[in-house]
Protein backbone atom coordinates (compact mmCIF):
# COMPACT_ATOMS: atom_id res chain seq x y z
CA UNK A 1 0.00 0.00 0.00
CA UNK A 2 1.32 3.39 -1.00
CA UNK A 3 1.51 5.31 2.26
CA UNK A 4 1.62 8.65 0.44
CA UNK A 5 -1.94 8.39 -0.78
CA UNK A 6 -4.50 6.08 0.83
CA UNK A 7 -8.16 5.63 -0.01
CA UNK A 8 -10.45 4.05 2.58
CA UNK A 9 -14.10 3.26 2.04
CA UNK A 10 -16.34 2.72 5.05
CA UNK A 11 -19.55 0.70 4.86
CA UNK A 12 -22.07 1.22 7.63
CA UNK A 13 -25.69 1.98 8.28
CA UNK A 14 -27.25 5.40 8.63
CA UNK A 15 -26.91 6.48 12.25
CA UNK A 16 -24.13 4.01 13.03
CA UNK A 17 -21.38 6.61 13.14
CA UNK A 18 -19.22 5.73 10.16
CA UNK A 19 -18.75 9.44 9.50
CA UNK A 20 -17.54 10.07 13.04
CA UNK A 21 -15.11 7.18 12.78
CA UNK A 22 -13.75 8.45 9.48
CA UNK A 23 -13.47 11.94 10.91
CA UNK A 24 -11.40 10.74 13.86
CA UNK A 25 -9.01 8.98 11.50
CA UNK A 26 -8.91 12.08 9.26
CA UNK A 27 -8.02 14.33 12.20
CA UNK A 28 -5.31 11.95 13.37
CA UNK A 29 -3.90 11.77 9.85
CA UNK A 30 -3.86 15.55 9.49
CA UNK A 31 -2.12 15.94 12.84
CA UNK A 32 0.43 13.32 11.78
CA UNK A 33 1.45 15.39 8.78
CA UNK A 34 -0.90 14.29 6.03
CA UNK A 35 -1.72 17.71 4.59
CA UNK A 36 -4.48 16.32 2.44
CA UNK A 37 -7.50 14.64 4.01
CA UNK A 38 -10.91 14.53 2.42
CA UNK A 39 -13.88 12.75 3.94
CA UNK A 40 -17.21 12.47 2.21
CA UNK A 41 -20.39 10.68 3.31
CA UNK A 42 -22.97 9.12 1.03
CA UNK A 43 -24.71 11.97 -0.67
CA UNK A 44 -28.42 12.00 -0.70
CA UNK A 45 -31.54 10.89 1.04
CA UNK A 46 -30.70 8.62 3.95
CA UNK A 47 -32.52 7.03 6.81
CA UNK A 48 -31.43 5.35 9.99
CA UNK A 49 -30.50 1.77 9.17
CA UNK A 50 -29.98 2.24 5.45
CA UNK A 51 -26.61 1.11 4.07
CA UNK A 52 -24.32 4.11 3.68
CA UNK A 53 -20.76 4.67 2.57
CA UNK A 54 -18.19 7.14 3.70
CA UNK A 55 -15.02 7.74 1.78
CA UNK A 56 -11.77 8.95 3.28
CA UNK A 57 -8.74 9.98 1.26
CA UNK A 58 -5.43 10.66 2.98
CA UNK A 59 -2.47 12.20 1.22
CA UNK A 60 0.84 13.90 1.96
CA UNK A 61 -0.23 16.66 -0.45
CA UNK A 62 -3.43 18.68 -0.60
CA UNK A 63 -6.15 16.71 -2.35
CA UNK A 64 -7.81 18.41 -5.30
CA UNK A 65 -9.86 15.52 -6.63
CA UNK A 66 -13.05 15.10 -4.61
CA UNK A 67 -14.65 12.54 -6.91
CA UNK A 68 -15.74 9.21 -5.36
CA UNK A 69 -13.16 6.56 -4.57
CA UNK A 70 -13.01 4.00 -7.38
CA UNK A 71 -10.21 1.72 -6.21
CA UNK A 72 -9.93 1.80 -2.43
CA UNK A 73 -6.87 0.47 -0.64
CA UNK A 74 -8.95 -0.44 2.42
CA UNK A 75 -12.62 -1.12 3.05
CA UNK A 76 -14.04 -0.98 6.55
CA UNK A 77 -17.29 -2.85 7.13
CA UNK A 78 -19.04 -1.89 10.35
CA UNK A 79 -21.64 -4.65 10.20
CA UNK A 80 -21.07 -8.08 8.68
CA UNK A 81 -24.69 -8.23 7.49
CA UNK A 82 -23.76 -5.54 4.98
CA UNK A 83 -21.78 -8.13 3.05
CA UNK A 84 -25.13 -9.33 1.71
CA UNK A 85 -26.53 -5.90 0.97
CA UNK A 86 -23.66 -3.98 -0.51
CA UNK A 87 -20.79 -4.92 -2.79
CA UNK A 88 -18.19 -3.95 -0.22
CA UNK A 89 -15.21 -5.18 -2.19
CA UNK A 90 -16.15 -3.34 -5.37
CA UNK A 91 -12.99 -1.76 -6.80
CA UNK A 92 -10.82 -2.90 -3.89
CA UNK A 93 -7.21 -3.05 -5.09
CA UNK A 94 -5.71 -6.55 -5.29
CA UNK A 95 -4.05 -7.15 -1.96
CA UNK A 96 -6.30 -4.54 -0.41
CA UNK A 97 -7.46 -4.83 3.18
CA UNK A 98 -10.98 -5.63 4.40
CA UNK A 99 -11.74 -4.79 8.01
CA UNK A 100 -14.86 -6.56 9.16
CA UNK A 101 -16.90 -6.39 12.33
CA UNK A 102 -18.24 -9.91 12.65
CA UNK A 103 -19.07 -12.46 15.35
CA UNK A 104 -17.96 -15.23 13.01
CA UNK A 105 -14.48 -16.70 13.00
CA UNK A 106 -11.76 -15.31 10.74
CA UNK A 107 -11.41 -18.72 9.12
CA UNK A 108 -15.03 -18.82 8.00
CA UNK A 109 -14.36 -16.22 5.30
CA UNK A 110 -12.48 -16.59 2.10
CA UNK A 111 -11.63 -13.39 0.28
CA UNK A 112 -9.13 -14.66 -2.26
CA UNK A 113 -7.49 -11.52 -3.54
CA UNK A 114 -7.62 -9.44 -0.40
CA UNK A 115 -6.27 -9.35 3.14
CA UNK A 116 -8.96 -9.77 5.77
CA UNK A 117 -9.00 -8.53 9.34
CA UNK A 118 -11.85 -9.45 11.67
CA UNK A 119 -12.98 -8.74 15.19
CA UNK A 120 -16.29 -9.02 17.01
CA UNK A 121 -16.47 -5.29 17.61
CA UNK A 122 -20.10 -5.54 18.67
CA UNK A 123 -19.13 -7.78 21.58
CA UNK A 124 -15.93 -5.87 22.33
CA UNK A 125 -17.83 -2.58 22.60
CA UNK A 126 -20.22 -4.08 25.12
CA UNK A 127 -17.24 -5.48 27.02
CA UNK A 128 -15.77 -1.98 27.10
CA UNK A 129 -18.99 -0.69 28.65
CA UNK A 130 -20.65 0.81 25.59
CA UNK A 131 -24.27 0.28 24.56
CA UNK A 132 -24.97 -2.57 22.15
CA UNK A 133 -24.37 -1.52 18.56
CA UNK A 134 -21.91 1.33 19.13
CA UNK A 135 -19.08 0.01 17.00
CA UNK A 136 -17.64 3.10 15.39
CA UNK A 137 -14.81 3.60 17.87
CA UNK A 138 -13.86 -0.06 18.23
CA UNK A 139 -13.50 -0.38 14.48
CA UNK A 140 -10.77 2.25 14.50
CA UNK A 141 -8.63 -0.10 16.58
CA UNK A 142 -9.13 -2.86 14.02
CA UNK A 143 -8.21 -0.52 11.18
CA UNK A 144 -4.94 0.39 12.86
CA UNK A 145 -4.07 -3.24 13.64
CA UNK A 146 -4.64 -4.27 10.06
CA UNK A 147 -3.17 -1.29 8.23
CA UNK A 148 -0.69 0.20 10.67
CA UNK A 149 -1.17 3.67 9.28
CA UNK A 150 -0.86 6.18 12.07
CA UNK A 151 -0.08 4.49 15.38
CA UNK A 152 -2.69 3.44 17.91
CA UNK A 153 -1.87 6.14 20.47
CA UNK A 154 -2.73 9.08 18.27
CA UNK A 155 -5.99 7.39 17.32
CA UNK A 156 -6.94 6.68 20.94
CA UNK A 157 -6.23 10.29 21.76
CA UNK A 158 -8.42 11.35 18.83
CA UNK A 159 -11.24 9.11 20.04
CA UNK A 160 -11.07 10.54 23.54
CA UNK A 161 -11.08 14.06 22.15
CA UNK A 162 -14.06 13.46 19.85
CA UNK A 163 -16.02 11.71 22.61
CA UNK A 164 -14.84 13.92 25.46
CA UNK A 165 -18.41 14.44 26.70
CA UNK A 166 -19.64 10.96 25.82
CA UNK A 167 -17.76 8.19 27.68
CA UNK A 168 -14.28 8.91 26.27
CA UNK A 169 -12.50 6.15 28.21
CA UNK A 170 -15.00 3.47 27.24
CA UNK A 171 -14.80 4.42 23.59
CA UNK A 172 -11.01 4.39 23.57
CA UNK A 173 -11.07 1.10 25.54
CA UNK A 174 -13.18 -0.44 22.79
CA UNK A 175 -10.59 0.63 20.22
CA UNK A 176 -7.74 -0.64 22.35
CA UNK A 177 -9.30 -4.06 22.86
CA UNK A 178 -10.18 -4.29 19.18
CA UNK A 179 -6.60 -3.36 18.31
CA UNK A 180 -5.32 -6.24 20.45
CA UNK A 181 -7.85 -8.83 19.39
CA UNK A 182 -8.21 -8.15 15.67
CA UNK A 183 -7.12 -11.14 13.63
CA UNK A 184 -5.36 -9.85 10.54
CA UNK A 185 -4.43 -12.06 7.65
CA UNK A 186 -1.25 -11.63 5.68
Amino acid sequence: MNKEFIEIRWHGRGGQGAITAAKIVAEAAFTSGYAGVVMAPTFGTERRGAPVMTSLKISREKIYDLSPIETPDIVVVLDHLLLKEADVTSGLKPGGIIILNTPMAFESYSFKDYRLATADITAISVEAGLPHGMVNTGIIGSLEKAAGLLGIDILLKGIEEEFRTRKPEKNSMAARIAYERTVAGG
Binding site: K23, A26, F30, A35, G36, V37, V38, M39, A40, P41, F43, G44, I63, L66
Partner: peptide, 10 residues
Amino acid sequence: GYILSHTYMP
Protein backbone atom coordinates in the same frame (compact mmCIF):
# COMPACT_ATOMS: atom_id res chain seq x y z
CA GLY B 1 -23.67 21.04 -2.95
CA TYR B 2 -22.42 17.78 -1.36
CA ILE B 3 -19.06 17.88 -3.10
CA LEU B 4 -18.10 20.83 -0.92
CA SER B 5 -21.02 21.36 1.45
CA HIS B 6 -20.96 17.87 2.97
CA THR B 7 -17.34 16.91 2.42
CA TYR B 8 -14.83 17.38 5.21
CA MET B 9 -11.40 18.84 4.67
CA PRO B 10 -8.95 20.99 6.63
